[in-house]
Write a protein that binds this DNA or RNA. Sequence first.
DNA 1: GCAAAAGTGTTGGAAATACACCCATGT
DNA 2: ACATGGGTGTATTTCCAACACTTTTGC
Lengths: 239, 239
Amino acid sequence: MTARQKKLKTILKELKDDGIIGISVDCVIFGFDENELKVLLIKSDLENFEDRWSLLGDLVNNHENLNQAAYRVLKDRTGMTDVYLEEVSVFGEVGRHPAARVVTIAYCSLINIQHHKLKSNDNELHWHRIGSISQMAFDHKKILDTCHEWLQKRVQEHPLGFSLLPKKFSLRELQNLYESILGVKLDRRNFRKKFFSMGLLQDTKEYELDVPHRPGKLYKFNYEKYRKKERKTWFGIDF
Amino acid sequence: MTARQKKLKTILKELKDDGIIGISVDCVIFGFDENELKVLLIKSDLENFEDRWSLLGDLVNNHENLNQAAYRVLKDRTGMTDVYLEEVSVFGEVGRHPAARVVTIAYCSLINIQHHKLKSNDNELHWHRIGSISQMAFDHKKILDTCHEWLQKRVQEHPLGFSLLPKKFSLRELQNLYESILGVKLDRRNFRKKFFSMGLLQDTKEYELDVPHRPGKLYKFNYEKYRKKERKTWFGIDF
DNA sequence: GCAAAAGTGTTGGAAATACACCCATGT
DNA sequence: ACATGGGTGTATTTCCAACACTTTTGC
């Protein structure tokens, strides 16, 4: 048991003894690699859940904001700082944590997996394919599923998928990303038409390298133009 | 100062002294009356915010789930039990509450205002028109705005607007509801077409009474049919 | 009979879908 | 030369937006 785990255990015991509700953040860290959506998990802290995988999380300090706590978890555990992060939901069932009453705020984080080199000695951390995960510690499977559904919806309405890709990407990569997040196959021509018609992809004049076929153009997402864009507010009622 | 307020003040003081983060729920209670979307507010509990309006909320007890806490607030303060309630977001900035660090879970509740007769002696509670509210206590204006935006989006994708209407309603009432939530004018014929084509409105064979014009048909929303309906998962990418 | 809102269809344009061939590159 | 994926256009269908007159009721 690490020092970190010991300290956590002590704090949780105190919370329980004093009848106090603890607050934590849990990060669902998505990455995209080998054309698959992956999630970064760690071997569970607690004995109760030995051999189960768990999200990265920690208790919130009294003096830090919630998203600061989430950033702290990301930075301390993955070393990454420039990360897309958004609050998704809250999980606060009375019995969700065996050691004490802990209400947790679930964050969805998207990282460019290329930039994140796992230290090789950090063999408690692993990237898992979505769909290859059945059981997890605590209610973390439920949290993961919620965040995945949130991402599926969100990625269709906001340009956050680009956070999972390198700055410069081919349209094929972009399409693979959408297909793997949504779990569907899309028509290549219509997909291109759709994205080009938005006018938010910027031609870099560069091409893929070292591919065993005709290289594709590389694009950047034009955040500046997106920010200025006038957005329609009425999408149409449809249940 | 009421007994309730005194007790709250004591607890908050304890939290602060012990350096503990408190957890509360705050309910944004929407109603629909006189063809306008309204929100139920109360005069603020705290001296700091005298004469400002505040959402209905309370600290979460150690032994109750978060939505149970939200239901409790609704029941204790409005007397209503059969209420639509959904978690929207979390607000946990360090300085958001002057008396202590309190993280609050914001709930959106929709009630049929007809069923809720405010006790006349309860003159601290008032229905406010959305848009007539400028300043509020704490960060409650931000919470209100967040919930309103959430409702605008949600009501277009899920059939929750009906919770604001009587069981039986005319299409005009339904359209007024959507118009007031979204702040837009809609074409009457297209609106009808849209809803009828969903096939979820059930003709009650009844008509409006006591209206000074041709009475409209009354409909019920068919939740059962909605539940069974197969929903498409792919809405199309659009930023 | 008049005021007020209910009820009802059609048409044109935009967007989504389905679909097949040639091109550039590495091996 | 061949295998692999890149790049492109069109026809069809579906969905959305715009729009005006007749009907029923209360007063």
